[in-house]
Design a protein around this nucleic acid. Sequence first.
RNA 1: GCGGACGUGGCGGAAAGGCAGACGCCGCGGUCUUAAAAACCGCUGAGGGGCAACCCUCGUGCGGGUUCGAAUCCCGCCGUCCGCACCA
Length: 845
Amino acid sequence: MTTNEPITHHPSPSTQHPSPDTHAERYDPSVIEPKWRERWERDQLYRVDDNAPGEKWFSLTMYPYPSGVLHIGHWYAFAVPDVFARLQRMRGYNVLFPMGFDAFGLPAENAAIRHNIHPATWTFENIDTMRRQYAQMGAMIDWSREVITCTPEYYHWNQWLFLQMLKRGLAYRAKGAVWWCPKDQTVLANEQVLEGNICERCGTAVYKRDLEQWYFRITDYADELLRDAEELDWPERVKTMQRNWIGRSEGARLRFRLETGDELEVFTTRPDTVWGATFMVLAPEHPLVETITTADRWAEVEAYVEQARRQTEIERMSTDEERQRTGVFTGAYAINPVTDERIPVWIADYVLMGYGTGAIMAVPFGDQRDFEFARAFDLPIRVVVQPEGVPPFDAATMTEAYAGPGILVNSGPMTGKRVPEELPEIIAWLAETGRGEAEVNYRLRDWLISRQRYWGTPIPVVYCDDCGMVPLPEDHLPVELPLAAAFTPTGQSPLVTNAAFLNTTCPQCGGPARRETDTMDTFVDSSWYWFRYTSPHDDRAPFNPEAAAMWTPVDLYCGGIEHAILHLLYARFITKVLRDLGLIEQSEPFLRLRNQGMILAEEGTKMSKSRGTQVAPDELVAVHGADALRLHLMYLGPWEQGGPWNSRGITGMERFIRRAFGLVTETGAEPASRQAGEPASRQETEALARLRARTIERVTTDLDEFQFNTMVAALIEYVNELMRLRETAVIHTPAWREALETLVLLMAPSTPYVAEELWERLGMPYSVHHQAWPTYEPALARADEVEVVVQVNGKVRDRLMLSVDLAEDAAREQALSLPKIAEAVNGREPRKVIYVPGRLINIVV
RNA sequence: GCGGACGUGGCGGAAAGGCAGACGCCGCGGUCUUAAAAACCGCUGAGGGGCAACCCUCGUGCGGGUUCGAAUCCCGCCGUCCGCACCA
């Protein structure tokens, strides 16, 4: 058997088939599973060929970090999507369902420090283990396409990408306040800092340091990232999280002149309220604080700045309780550009350096924070907006700011304008008169990609005393990560101490130069890895554009919700960059996203190694088999919801497999010995055909909707029903044989091993995984007669077998003639009759 | 504080206006067996009635509403989880 046989439709079951070997035998996964695993491997059953027939389908599951061994969460994340990929393959798609390893990163370094083992050794040993475990799972992986990001053949192209981005100004080096993790001894991107300023990786409190670092200009794509997300078939909450993270707001940049001669720019979403700006506030870290503060205010200002900085380092915000507005007057004054009034300039920690310009015009009338600040420090409040139909505002008696719509008052030439409707005209006036201009602001910051760690992609630039920073020419790539390094984190990259790596020559002038020693954030690796699967061994480009055009974008991406912002935002960004580099045409990497829920420990808490509540898949496979474990994971509950592990339920799945196994092996040959027993009635064979059709329909639609739990229930019900019918004469009809073949085909995606075994035992040609997904007559799937409930005043009084499309009159008549109904109606005249064909009749008296 | 999701037997869950609890686990009873295990068959929301087939009442977090009919739709609470949270 060769690798890429086209999907073959097996011959109609009523035609000839070899006499199957049906000797009864116990189901033993420990024999069946290794047998077929080896056979599939030998035959390269899952080898993917670009030129195979069928429309392409790219199913992707987030590749794992090679942390050691697969835990049950890996199975949940991968074995379940494997079922869907298999369905697609049986439907005739040419399916790519690849796997690789996100192999750079800190844990390898930490293991190196703890166990005195090289990160590479640790990583590759883990990969070997995990690869074996994925094979055990029965997953449909073509290992010839494996991508391992810590290999030079992969990270070469991180470096190449970096150079292209540098060329286009999308990568740059800049100094600024950046998050620093004192435990990991490296900087972090904003996205990697959790609420409360905690390191996403190790949970340590992080703080800001002023450092020069490398960035990717993701903000250039902010608008596009926001806009394109609308079209994606992604969970709404993931899109919302990205939207919030990007944080677009429309407004204007306004210029204020200070009496010191400095200019102060602010961003505001309410430029219409500038007539109400009665003071200004700078973030404590604002660079102007030092220059504008007057001598008499200096001591107080310095103390406040110091205290604000400390606060940042420890814990930023406690939000719920009454927030005390704090701040200090700098002694400086600005001129309101529209009123020409002198207004005081304060500093306060409620203004953040990281957003907008780090300074605001304070409009206490229209902004609650400014209002509270004005009340706290007795600063003037001026009414500038008056809604219609309410008594005029009085600044002296207002208890909170008014941010709603209305008509501008006390606003010079703009008085009488309606807001927010006429905001564009107001902004236009401000621009014409040189006071500012429209601006869109984002919460999103550029992506900080440099790390002071060893186990990552070296950044391919050098520093030359004469030429400065010089990017390496592409033919110098890859810059290989040297194996010899001191791993203990010092706050500098360990590469600094590796003289052989560090010292090089300048590609421009040939003089001595030093290599960049920082490495890239591992999220760079995962921002384009799926393209590499399409041509994993291309040594001239990150990927072959033709192969990428054929396979990408990814049709279905599965993974955990924890990547809602980080990985998924970066991946979307880099996809757009690759598009602009001309490598691909699409703007979005993942058309459809589905997030699996988390498997919890049996007690409903998070699985934990230290408390011993983790579940080891290997042991379960050894006892129950991979097929049973796959079913059990699907059956725990809705996949997108996750839930607590249940150690007992797996026996139910094992029982199901055993029943199906017995059913097929013991009765598979029955039609061949048709002579026995009396013939089945037409109704009986028809009922079997209906059962079969209805089951195909249920299994198929459930799989399409990712409702794996109910899909398994449909399979179980099918087998239970067949167990009952097994005692009837239909067992001798061709329909029985067809029903069994259908059972095996329907089981093939979920339980690939036992399905293959049973297919063989039915005497069918290898492999079941090359067969077409069963089809059915839609008319058969809907029963023609159905039990209809007869209610009187909404209470069920009797049941009735009726044709599904029976007319109301006839149904009503039949219902009323039932003795129980007549009794319940008790001679009263029906006031109303509700008839839902195929469902119920409700007689209201 | 704002926004969203969820709340159903002993347990996991089905049902998304139409018989609540599919299916599985647990439990109980039975068949087979010297016995046990496995396998198979049956029962299994609560309360009540009947020799019995069955019948009645209650029941989807709590309180209201809409509807012939509500787990499902609407309003108000309570609880759990998630996201956002000084973003000018």
